[in-house]
Design a protein around this nucleic acid. Structure first.
Lengths: 229, 229
DNA sequence: ACCTGTCTGTGACAAGATCACGAATGCCGG
DNA sequence: CCGGCATTCGTGATCTTGTCACAGACAGGT
């Protein structure tokens, strides 16, 4: 079930500029071997220890790559959005190692799956393709290091405030997430998030309701860490 | 000051097998453009924000790559030993980004410095070289993710115990490091390390002296986290 | 011996993690 | 409309970790 739909081809070309720079040889082979897949919200894409057989190029939706500990605690490493792909998968394909994390669909996915074989074969033959893979690595490597930095150096109230500012949308900004989801994002526990949110609410910076946080005072959140909570 | 010493060439060939698999064209260019450098213990190799101009291939010594926060706190990301090289540098060279951490010489270094220009140019031309760079990425990517995992999911007593077991040498195993150095390794503070070590000592697992820890009861350390401290 | 800088020990307290509940909310079937 | 039922949230108790402040202990030089 390869991709024989010219409309999908154009969509991919728009989202992944390397397809415009690459040789026509490469592109022909690419569209011949790629598979278009759909996955629904909540599905697990890849579990810890899996062997990666395909590199996904996202066309639609969001996936979350995270690490989870024995106790059920989690922390998000990074997310993938349309036009992006997954370094960890690429790294696993090129090195043959097992996948060291878990990947999950956050909102309905459409992705072009590039067979591992193809990835390996063309990395030496097409420079646009190679450059794309390298940009993947560089982008995510620094993202993961930033996760380390945040976890080790930043206070949790700052990290929660930053989360709210990043994930809010609309006006007034609203975040649709349970306290547990926020905790899993930041690598902490639900109780701690609940307590911090409560204290933000008591300061008048946010309003809490089931499964949702509404930001009332952006400036307060921006200042968390500078002033004394 | 390129490398015109055949003895050094042989040393490099032994430590870096890709030089044996690579084309002779590549090897000639490689030895022409590489520079041999020596750095002494304690020197800073690369600071946060630097632009990387050379990829170091280690011949001798150890370098430590770490991240440090505003407050002076640090955490080690990974180390480089003979036969290895630095992913972050490679990634920066290929993507043009600034170096997102700090690198330091832990014990006198000898390294072959490959110019950034060379790295970029030959990554598309020689498959052995390319494979080497990719193996760098895969190795360190999982190492960094493991750092995240340890910081987020493991208790500190376990991490200190694991540190002692990893870094001990001789019999009985001795670790030459100050409490501050151990703290910097693990991303925590000296006082906390001091307290945990003290409690290990009171349990008879180790003996403390200035700048040194002697492991007396390996089994105790192995069991930390399972039993109750 | 004495000074000096580094290293270690410790008490007090704040922040974060974990455990053990119970209360509030939203939903669904009757 | 009402009574389960599952999920989400709140909270006290307790333990671990982080931070601050400061004192004592040790090693090396003069």
């Amino acid at each position: 079930m390869s991709m024989n739909n010219p409309e999908n081809e154009n969509r991919l070309r728009q989202l992944f500029p390397f397809l415009q720079e690459a040789d026509s040889d490469f592109c022909r082979a690419f569209f011949d071997s790629v598979i278009l897949a759909h996955l629904k919200t909540g599905n697990e894409v890849c579990a810890e220890g899996n062997t990666c057989t395909h590199l996904p190029l996202l066309v639609e939706g969001v996936a979350r790559i995270y690490k989870s500990g024995e106790t059920g605690k989690e922390i998000t490493l990074y997310r993938i959005r349309p036009g992006e792909s997954c370094v960890l998968t690429a790294s696993c394909i090129l090195s043959g190692r097992p996948f060291p994390a878990t990947a999950n669909v956050e909102s309905n996915l459409t992705a072009a799956l590039v067979p591992a074989e193809f990835v390996r074969k063309w990395i030496g033959r097409d420079s646009a393709w190679r450059a794309y893979i390298f940009s993947l690595v560089a982008d995510r490597l620094s993202a993961i290091i930033q996760v380390v930095e945040e976890v080790v150096f930043q206070r949790l109230d700052q990290r929660v405030a930053a989360y709210l500012l990043r994930h809010g949308s609309g006006s007034p900004a609203a975040i649709h997430a349970t306290h547990q989801e926020i905790a899993d994002e930041l690598g902490t526990s639900r109780e701690v998030v609940s307590r911090l949110l409560k204290s933000f609410e008591q300061s008048g910076a946010i309003r809490l309701s089931r499964g949702q946080v509404t930001v009332i005072d952006r400036d307060y959140l921006l200042g968390v860490g500078a002033n004394g909570l």
